[in-house]
Design a protein around this nucleic acid. Structure first.
Lengths: 132, 132
DNA sequence: CGTCTTGCTTACGTTCGCGTCAACTTGATC
DNA sequence: GATCAAGTTGACGCGAACGTAAGCAAGACG
């Protein structure tokens, strides 16, 4: 069961990203795969981080914002002010997400209404020529 | 009450965007202000569209996706296949948003947990040196 | 009349998040 | 030992979404 360590190719297949992407994230210090010689090896931690990265991206966060958030998920520092700072940015992101959550709820309701209106227009247009 | 028509400057102030942005959206056919001579004038319709554009952006949609969505909000075409196509893309966007909504809910719960864990670490670090 | 402000067009510059080579190493295989 | 696949490090390229700067028009104002 060597599902502990994965090569870059396995990672790419598993997460549907390209090698370039993984190296890019590493360059931006979002993940830190080990090296066996020259080759990168990704462990469970790296995979967890990548999951969070991709999730964060889907919410529209920048890689830098995500990097800061990842510190919250990593038991890295024991420095008091560091932890406090990390918490602060985490709370900001949380606020962002909560705002987005509320707005998304509205937007979905909105879009549903527009869709049903359009369905009506579609039905009304049924007796006209079917093409333009 | 000439709140019916607004200049580009008034729009920028109202929506916190730059003139460049408004002209850019126009070039991409997301808004269609009237012209008085050379000057652009924005009416209620334009403002509604801009609101939707900015909202869409916050959800991570591209301007092109937003442009397509806007057709749903504009009583533009009476062409049956056109309306049907518009509905289709609208449903796709809706699905996107619903997925995002669900995932966001998870992510928020997740982040809350990480934050509370971090608070605990912060408390635990209290008796150590307060700086590094 | 000059000039100030507001806006216009055109066009090149910039940042982010990668894509796409090129050239090299390295371990495996014929 | 030649080749081949998999991986590596640069370095440049690219599309999206604007920023920025140059140069022109046109009404307002002293």
């Amino acid at each position: 069961m060597s599902d502990e360590l994965m090569t870059i190719r396995q990672m790419c297949d598993a997460f549907d990203v390209t090698p370039r992407t993984l190296r890019f994230y590493e360059a931006r210090e979002l993940i830190f795969p080990q090296r066996r010689g020259q080759h990168r090896l990704y462990d469970r931690r790296d995979r967890a981080r990548l999951t969070l990265i991709l999730r964060g991206k889907r919410f529209g966060f920048s890689l830098e914002q995500i990097r800061q958030l990842l510190e919250l998920y990593a038991p890295g520092s024991t420095n008091r002010t560091q932890i406090a700072a990390t918490i602060t940015v985490g709370e900001e992101r949380l606020a962002d997400m909560e705002r987005q959550y509320a707005e998304l709820s509205e937007a979905i309701a909105d879009l549903r209404k527009q869709l049903s209106d359009a369905q009506i227009r579609l039905a009304a247009a049924s007796h006209e020529q079917p093409t333009g």
